[in-house]
Amino acid sequence: MNEQLTEDGRLKHLLTLDGLPARILTQILDTAESFLTVGDKEVKKVPLLRGKAIFNVFFENSTRTRTTFEIAAKRLSADVVNLNIGTSSQSKGETLLDTVANLSAMQADMFVVRHSAAGAAHLIARHVAPHIRVVNAGDGRAAHPTQGLLDMFTLRRFKGGFHTLRVAVVGDVLHSRVARSQIHALTTLGCPEVRVVAPKTLLPRDVESMGVHVFHKMEEGLRDVDAVLMLRLQNERMQGARLPSAGEYYKRWGLTPEKLKFAKPDAIVLHPGPMNRGVEIDSAVADGVQAVILPQVTFGIAVRMAVMSMLAGGQ
């Protein structure tokens, strides 16, 4: 029994893409497609979540993700409350579940949760009242499902589908919840060849069990791919000397125009942001014609509207 689904097979919480059926992923992408045109209207809102209170509960900072969730919720006409817990209750010693119980007492209908500990959103989902919905906005190294979904949306928009795609996920896979969500989504949606390209020290030991092909050289890993999914080098999660230096990393693993030439000529480049220019990605690529990094941000709003509207209705 998947704790993310209702008994009749509808999405209840969005915690991870691991184990979600292709039918649900496709439904989210299709619904997001319809939310994209909502931005064409003079009034860029729809009334679906009128009267619902959505709490963005961020135990770890993230301006961009929190902002896109906030915009998505506001375009659905929900009331949004932003809480940066890292700077308040937790520092006073309150437990995670106490914080959530207090926010539930303020009549929350949905929690959007970011936490540095893997499984935080799952824990909250197991303890909230039955009518409350939980969206994982990133938990530790485990999952960042809405980022994975918006990357799938971007791939489908620019490449038409998944069944003939060769995709490379490049960089700090070890620390990346984004990579895990991308790999689960790609394999579920039928992408026949998912590669990871990274130094040995930035790969989890069990990575091959996720159904990916491992490469340690950029020129081999990028050869003839349709899309390059760059990851951010997570300096803040880096403990111990896994890498020689940022300059050395750029030389071997940074995506430069020269290295991008190994990919197909029409390959697209994605990055979840924020970018470390001159470390994992060269400015000429980040600002180049093959980059779809800014469309990703726009699509992220539509994808989050789709997720929140699928969770909140029909109770």
Partner: peptide, 8 residues
């Protein structure tokens, strides 16, 4: 929407 959810 509140009763039946989003149309599939």
């Amino acid at each position: 929407y509140a009763q039946r959810g989003l149309h599939g």
